[in-house]
C-alpha cells in the first residue's frame, strides 16, 4: 500500500467514510510506517481541535432578549405581511401555472434521460468508487473549479458516480487522465512506496 493512498484513507477514516476492509489495510500500513503514523496522529489532533472549538457566546443580555425579538418580528409580519402576501399570491397565479408547466417539461426530460441510463448494477461499494474518484480528484479538484468557475464540481460528480457502471467509471477515469495535464500541479506528488 502506498503512502499517498494512506494519507487519503487517514482522512476518510476520520469521517467514518472507510469500509471495514480498507480500515484494516490502513491499520496494517500504519503499524509499519512511522511517517504515516505521525500523519494520522496529526490529522486526528486537528479533527479533535476543530470539534472542540466552540463558537463565541454573545452573552446573557443577548439571550434574555432573543425570544422577545423573535416575537416582535412575528408581530411585525402579522401586521404587514399577510394581506400583501395573499394579494401577491392571487396576482402570481398565472405565472405559477407557467412555471408548473415548465417544471413538468423538465421532469419529463430527466425521466427520459434516466430511462436511457444503462441498468447494470454497480459492482463496487460506494466507498471504493469514492476512493477511485478521490484519486482522480487529487488531480482535478484544484483545476476544475478554476476552469468552470463552480464551487465544487466534484461533489455533484460523486452523486453521478453512484449510478455509473464499472465500464463507465473506467471510461471517465481514462478521460480524466487524457484530458487533464497534470505536469504543472504543485501537489502532484510521486507515490512513495513503503520500503
Amino acid at each position: 500500500m502506498k503512502c499517498t493512498s494512506t494519507r487519503r484513507w487517514i482522512l476518510l477514516a476520520l469521517t467514518d467514510s472507510l469500509s471495514a476492509r480498507r480500515n484494516r489495510k490502513l491499520n496494517e500500513h500504519l503499524e509499519k510506517c512511522p511517517a504515516c503514523r505521525t500523519e494520522s496522529r496529526q490529522a486526528r489532533d486537528l479533527w479533535e481541535e476543530i470539534a472542540h472549538d466552540e463558537t463565541r457566546d454573545p452573552g446573557p443580555t443577548y439571550w434574555q432578549s432573543f425570544a422577545s425579538r423573535v416575537r416582535r418580528r412575528i408581530d411585525a409580519h402579522d401586521e404587514a405581511g399577510a394581506p400583501v402576501e395573499s394579494l401577491a399570491v392571487a396576482a402570481r397565479a398565472g405565472e405559477l401555472w407557467c412555471r408548473a408547466l415548465a417544471a413538468a417539461a423538465v421532469v419529463l426530460v430527466v425521466a427520459l434521460a434516466l430511462l436511457d441510463r444503462p441498468q447494470e448494477p454497480p459492482i463496487f461499494e460506494t466507498d471504493e468508487i469514492l476512493a477511485d474518484v478521490l484519486q482522480a480528484s487529487e488531480l482535478t479538484d484544484e483545476i476544475l473549479p478554476a476552469a468552470f468557475s463552480v464551487e465544487d464540481p466534484l461533489a455533484d460528480l460523486y452523486e453521478e458516480f453512484n449510478h455509473l457502471s464499472p465500464k463507465q467509471v473506467q471510461r471517465l477515469w481514462t478521460w480524466l487522465e487524457q484530458e487533464i495535464d497534470t505536469s504543472g500541479l504543485p501537489h502532484r506528488r510521486n507515490d512513495d512506496e513503503v520500503s
Binding site: 486537528l46 479533527w47 474518484v133 478521490l134 480528484s137
Partner: peptide, 17 residues
Amino acid sequence: TIGTVKANLFHALRRLR
C-alpha cells in the same frame, strides 16, 4: 447522497489539514 457527504467531508478535512 451519502457519497457526496463523504466526499465533501474529505475535501474539507484535506483543505483544513
